[in-house]
Simulated scan of single mutants.
Amino acid sequence: MRPAPGTARAVLALVLAAIPVHAALKSPGSGVDNRIVVHAARLWLAGGSPYADPHFLYFPSAVLAAVPQALVPAGVLRVAVPVLVTGGLVAGWACALRVYGVAWHSRFAVAGLLALALGSAPFAHLVHLANWTVTAAAALPCALLLATRGRWLAAGLVIGAALALKPLLAPVALLFVLARQWRGLAALVAVPAGASAAAALAMPDPAGFFTRTLPFLLRGDDVFVRLYEASPGAVLTRLGVPPAAAALVAAAGAAAGLWCARRRWRRGDEGVRRPVETAVMLLLSAFLVSRPSYDHYLLVVVPLLLAGALEAGAPARGPWFWAVLLPQVPGLAWPWLDTGERRAFLDCAALCGLALVAGLHCARRGPVTLEPCGMTGTPTVPGSRDDHVLTRPGQRGYPA
């Protein structure tokens, strides 16, 4: 694929510069969500409990990770944090492209990043909030890039490091179970567990995550949070559905998604798309049932699907993939739903629609391969000339 023309790259650079500059000028402090984590770190430095704020929903290791920000002047953070968040999203897109062997400077790469930045409201929303979801958006494509090259242990370390900052990627552990990559799974679990245990020992309430944060997540009854939750359980409750019934609907959707993810893995075809689509389906299933669940969670999975649009049969090549993302297009008017308090209905529609599109794609019939991936090297495919699959010139492919 030919490199993008200079004009397109210049436009992309201008857009990527304008978004963090606007966030720095308009967002309070270093972003509303990032400010919660920084405040928790400052509380800890002052001898208090970071879990005194019920909206601090992270592991203890995140407190120590936020300490450098707590020591930096507010004026510096206000400029630096939006730039770093934007950079994290760009890095995630670059890794997603490399999973499919697409050059980062190609026409498709530039057009895709422009589509994410200009055509997806959660992109600018995440930069303005400076939510630590960006760590997952950058880590997941990086980990999948390593996994598709047979480096599952390194992939587990990357996911584990992301979990230590925000436990959003926890469902991806099931990908390691499906692939029977036990060393990678052990690394995935050990990194956040060890980091959180060590950090908890330095807290005035070492069990604060379990006694305060976990009950809050299980209840999901915070009035402020509920207005922005995109999960079906939260949205259906707002529409008058009894909470128990709403939770049952969300759980049923998540269970169906898990079944689709398992079926996608067992189909065992189409090279690198196998782990990518399985991981995406696992996360979408979790987003359906998790409380809270926000619009910017989609930025963890959509770039991975979009980057595969050049692959024949990929979900992003179908019209329904684009149709279900219409609620996320900035500036598109939706009667009665364009207020901040009702935005969650659009976010829920996009989440459920994307889960449905991805689920149907994962559940379609295909050949079944039960053999797990190897830890090192490239597994052989019987019947090929050299017992390897070449997905593109000069690069060994993911096992079929």
Rank of each mutant, 00 (worst) to 15 (best):
residue 187 A to L: 09
residue 286 A to V: 08
residue 314 A to K: 00
residue 143 A to E: 06
residue 99 V to A: 07
residue 101 G to A: 14
residue 28 P to F: 09
residue 96 A to W: 02
residue 300 V to I: 15
residue 45 L to Y: 04
residue 246 A to F: 01
residue 129 L to V: 00
residue 218 L to R: 15
residue 285 S to W: 00
residue 142 C to A: 09
residue 343 R to D: 14
residue 222 D to N: 13
residue 385 R to M: 11
residue 217 L to G: 00
residue 145 L to W: 13
residue 363 A to Y: 08
residue 131 N to H: 15
residue 293 S to W: 07
residue 228 Y to M: 09
residue 14 L to E: 03
residue 98 R to I: 13
residue 303 P to D: 01
residue 318 G to E: 06
residue 167 P to F: 07
residue 313 G to E: 06
residue 105 H to Y: 10
residue 303 P to S: 03
residue 130 A to K: 00
residue 246 A to Y: 01
residue 89 L to G: 01
residue 194 G to V: 10
residue 356 L to Q: 03
residue 291 R to L: 15
residue 131 N to K: 11
residue 4 A to H: 12
residue 51 Y to N: 08
residue 226 R to K: 15
residue 181 Q to M: 04
residue 94 A to N: 04
residue 16 L to T: 08
residue 168 L to P: 04
residue 307 A to H: 02
residue 219 R to L: 12
residue 112 G to C: 10
residue 204 P to L: 12
residue 201 L to K: 06
residue 301 V to A: 01
residue 140 L to P: 03
residue 356 L to A: 13
residue 104 W to A: 15
residue 4 A to V: 11
residue 41 A to M: 09
residue 55 H to F: 13
residue 385 R to Y: 11
residue 40 A to S: 12
residue 129 L to N: 00
residue 30 S to W: 02
residue 42 R to H: 09
residue 95 C to V: 14
residue 190 A to V: 04
residue 132 W to A: 12
residue 368 V to C: 04
residue 216 F to N: 09
residue 207 A to D: 00
residue 100 Y to W: 15
residue 334 W to Y: 11
residue 389 V to W: 14
residue 234 A to H: 10
residue 107 R to Q: 15
residue 261 A to F: 00
residue 168 L to A: 12
